[in-house]
Amino acid sequence: MRADGVLGMLDRWGRSALPGATLLFFVLLTLAPLRAPYLSGALPLLPALVVFQFSLATPERLPGPLLLIMGILLDLLLGGPGAPVGVSALGFVLIRAAVVNNRRYLVGVPFLFQWFGFCLLALGFVALVWFFTALWTWTAIDPLPALMQYAVVIVIYPLLAPLLARVRARDPLNVPDASRGTARPGETTS
């Protein structure tokens, strides 16, 4: 595809910056003092959801170093004396790697499969963060709040994922690797 003029260039820049910007937004939203019960507790898991969702279609726009920085930023902002800084980064990088290596089972499949995949990966993420936080602070942290968070984010996924997928769908590169290059501009797969 050839860039045509300034608008085309802006368009491409906007597209490549979108996943990163969305991730940053959700990282910052983590700190929003929202008082909605349950929902506010699940906010810290939404960045993981964004990483999962964008890794499905455009992992090249969420490069590893960016995920590293975002994860560390999230850990710094969430605070907690003694909590490990970088555990979210580790989780993000692993989620992206898991999605990229399992595209076959996650891309171009019915939504339920994607949801199931997210359930598995998010559980891994929650367990990872819980384990390292418990290890670093050397206290037996009650896993129940973390599981509660997990349950809420699982329920939120079907509400939020289609929105993020809509954002992606306008992207002409949003086609599986196998058919990339054969698709006409504007043609998408879901």
């Binding site: 590893g64 995920l67 590293l68 994860g71 560390i72 490990p84 800084v85 970088g86 980064a89």
Partner: peptide, 23 residues
Amino acid sequence: ALGLLVIAAFGAMLLGKADTVLV
């Protein structure tokens, strides 16, 4: 690259554990 990223994340965690003032 994945290995490097994982090592970097672990490095950040260990650094945070070792140097609390920096964190």
